[in-house]
């Protein structure tokens, strides 16, 4: 029992990331009808916003402390981050410690700009082109963005720790009446899960309860009629693209303490997120979220040692197997509407 709960919990954080990326993909596909192969790289860009903020905050200058010496007897060189010099030692330390949450402030405008530039500069010209062309051009863009990240941040993963407050693990076992230390769950993963839920709720509320969201939903259902009513639906869709980019970026920022970001992380997540979108149902937002969490949990169950002993290698392929079965048995996906992209 405790093992099962542990696996569900383990699946949640990866599932959150899948759900957020898949949500953005679905938003873009539902509004603009474009398949964005560069969406995974947007996730990576968000993650590297956190890396950049951490790098910025830990940029330091060197002073020589004459009063102390190192073990060779030379005067000790002390590295002082600029933030500590400017904001005082405590405040600077706090800034550095909290660089991941602070990175959100950087990620939102950066991702919005990147999203707008992508849509206006590139994807706009591909609405009328076949899906194959859209896939190819965004695939090319993904390679380019990935290489730019690599150029600036190098090929090695860069660890960005969570704030000290969230270090350590929470003992769920005690709370649920099991033995202590049976279900340990890192605090930051709880934060990530909560954050993902908040973002998802915000997106749904935005679409459901605002006039802007209503127009967007109307445009998703029947673009032409909305246009005939004199509403500039294209501009709203562009904004939705930027929002989708921001969602992917936020998912990336907050993911950095869980897995150290690497320049090619986006592509691995992209392939899986596409599978998530397909399983959930192309164009269905609740489907994307549901399938994201579901596949995250299924994947973590498949990684249990008992399961791997039974069927070796299942943890590597389970998601793809699920996707293949879903596509063949129920082509429109779990929550997909009938007739949407069924062939």
């Amino acid at each position: 029992m405790d093992a099962i709960i542990l696996q569900i919990l383990n699946g949640l954080d990866k599932g959150s990331a899948y759900a957020l990326i898949a949500l953005g993909l679905t938003l873009i596909f539902g509004t603009l009808g474009v398949v964005n192969f560069a969406h995974g790289v947007l996730f990576a860009l968000g993650a590297f916003c956190a890396v950049a903020i951490q790098g910025l905050f830990s940029t330091s200058f060197e002073t020589i402390d004459e009063t102390r010496t190192d073990f060779l007897g030379n005067p000790l060189k002390v590295q002082t981050p600029y933030v500590e010099a400017w904001f005082g030692e405590t405040m600077g330390g706090v800034l550095l410690d909290w660089s991941v949450p602070i990175a959100i402030l950087l990620a939102v405008p950066v991702m919005a700009l990147v999203g707008l530039a992508m849509e206006r500069g590139l994807i706009k010209h591909f609405y009328k082109r076949p899906h194959a062309d859209q896939i190819l051009v965004t695939f090319g863009l993904a390679i380019v963005l990935q290489q730019i990240i690599k150029y600036f941040f190098g090929a090695n993963p860069i660890a960005v720790p969570a704030p000290d407050v969230f270090q350590g693990s929470f003992d769920f076992g005690v709370m649920l009446g099991f033995d202590p230390f049976t279900i340990m769950y890192p605090y930051w993963r709880i934060v990530y899960f909560g954050f993902a839920l908040a973002v998802i709720a915000a997106i749904f509320a935005f679409l459901q309860f605002t006039t802007f969201g209503m127009v967007v939903r109307a445009g998703m259902a029947d673009r032409e009629t909305v246009g005939l009513l004199g509403i500039n639906i294209g501009r709203r869709f562009t904004i939705m693209f930027a929002i989708a980019a921001i969602v992917a970026g936020l998912a990336g920022v907050m993911y950095t303490p869980i897995v150290a970001p690497n320049y090619d992380m986006g592509m691995n997540f992209l392939v899986l997120s596409f599978v998530v979108v397909v399983v959930g149902g192309m164009g269905s937002l609740p489907g994307a979220v549901l399938a994201g969490f579901l596949l995250g949990i299924i994947e973590s169950f498949a990684s249990m040692s008992a399961v791997i002993e039974l069927i070796p290698g299942i943890n590597q392929v389970i998601i793809y197997l699920v996707a293949i079965v879903v596509l063949l048995v129920r082509p429109r996906g779990l929550l997909g509407r009938k007739g949407v992209m069924e062939d």
Binding site: V35, H131, Y320, A323, I324, L327, P331, M341
Partner: peptide, 14 residues
């Protein structure tokens, strides 16, 4: 069994 993007994603998955 499928075409379009689904075909691309299925082949990618395999």
């Amino acid at each position: 069994r499928r075409s379009g993007i689904y075909f691309s994603i299925l082949t990618l998955a395999f």
